[in-house]
């Protein structure tokens, strides 16, 4: 997994690429820390470059959502396609993560 953050007007856009799996645990938590240190009110996760996400990866998105609720910013998950889209659909997590 790789990601790029760009922040503009308190909106952080994070563009992911590669696979998001259990082994990305540490770097994902680092990402959440980075977000926490910035004055954001909205975060957009762009998943259009992600090929696959496993259940641990979905768990990390849930942690992001929880952090959003606690810190008072909005999370939006966009661009999911292929395997990622079907995982989000199968687990009904798309609605849960967005908002």
């Amino acid at each position: 997994m790789e990601y790029q953050i760009t922040t503009k007007d308190n909106v952080a856009s994070i563009v992911f690429s590669g696979d998001i799996t259990f082994s990305e645990n540490v770097s994902f938590r680092q990402l959440l820390k980075d977000i926490a240190e910035q004055p954001v009110n909205r975060c957009e996760f762009d998943l259009s470059g992600v090929d696959m996400v496993d259940s641990a990866g979905l768990g990390m998105f849930l942690i992001a959502r929880e952090q959003a609720d606690t810190a008072g910013w909005k999370l939006a998950v966009t661009g999911a396609q292929g395997h990622v889209a079907s995982m989000l659909k199968l687990t009904k997590l798309a609605d849960l993560l967005d908002g």
Partner: peptide
């Protein structure tokens, strides 16, 4: 159709 929110979340 095994769609559903995984157990233990909500």
């Amino acid at each position: 159709d095994s769609t559903g929110i995984p157990v233990g979340i909500v």
